[in-house]
Design a protein around this nucleic acid. Structure first.
Lengths: 152, 152
DNA sequence: TTTTTTCAGCATATGAAATTAGATGATATC
DNA sequence: GATATCATCTAATTTCATATGCTGAAAAAA
């Protein structure tokens, strides 16, 4: 799907604040409300916009402890990889998971209540996954800039 | 601010889909529309909900190249740290930035069009920041699980 | 060139949702 | 026991998203 400048401006606004009304957008972009409406619908139909979410401050919901966990698999055959990826995606503490280049295979962004909860997560959930080799945890001291949507 | 179970359920829904109507929420939670409305307003007032955003597929807006970049500062006095953090927050390629424990001081999540754009970003923007020591880039081969809101 | 089709936009209308206002009952406070 | 506070309710109002049908420009077909 092709995006023109107007589409990009609309996306830009909706990424900053999806509660902006079509009218406000139309004023800023010199289009009618209907035109804006139809463009947004088109962006949604084509899955350029995948969905709309509320961003919640993690520290306010008793989840103030964020960790980047790097993981090495012991084996990299397709079936192992797929199994690992499926399992890890199910863990609700895992906000994000990426297959990456470099020394480790995966980087996970993990959010829990505190260090104790993290220990529990490691011992009972993460290291229970098969084929996991070594892991390395990097603790977040302070978020400087963040757009992460947090799950309860 | 204290959150009861109803607040948490509301947050949980809004994090999955902020376009859900108060009526739908009220049906699921056996409350009136007004009660839901007041609770959400309260969550917004208290900044538990910081804002609402549209999630956009990065590959569809010509930004398919994501990188974790770890950064070490040469010096850690307060004024340097603050200056670095301010500057880095302004860079639109930087989606997220965290002050972390371990060998490096910061982890940045960066999103650009491609490897060439990343090189350009490193050379012209990142390494231009003062007090930067070494950096290490980890490239994302494939996102397995992700909730990241992308900026154009 | 002329005609037709397609498409993006527009104004207007309407139904649904958000928001406001006022009433009620429960719980805490003096 | 009286009063204040708070969350909730119902009902009224306002605002917004969305559907409909029209218009003109550009593209395609004749």
């Amino acid at each position: 799907m092709k995006l023109d400048d107007i589409d990009k401006k609309i996306l830009h606004q909706l990424q900053k604040d999806s509660k902006i009304t079509n009218k406000e957008l139309s004023l800023g972009l010199n289009l009618s409300v209907t035109a804006i409406f139809e463009r947004i619908k088109r962006l949604e139909r084509n899955k350029v916009i995948s969905n709309y979410v509320a961003l919640v401050k993690p520290e306010l919901i008793e989840k103030g402890f964020m960790v980047f966990c790097q993981i090495k698999l012991v084996q990299h055959s397709k079936s192992y990889v797929i199994k690992f990826e499926n399992e890890v995606a199910k863990l609700q503490e895992v906000l994000e998971c990426y297959h990456v280049s470099g020394e480790y295979d995966y980087i996970l962004k993990i959010l829990v209540k505190d260090m104790e909860a993290y220990r529990e997560f490691m011992v009972t959930k993460l290291t229970n996954l098969e084929h996991i080799g070594s892991t390395q945890s990097t603790f977040i001291i302070s978020p400087i800039k963040s757009t992460t949507a947090i799950s309860l």
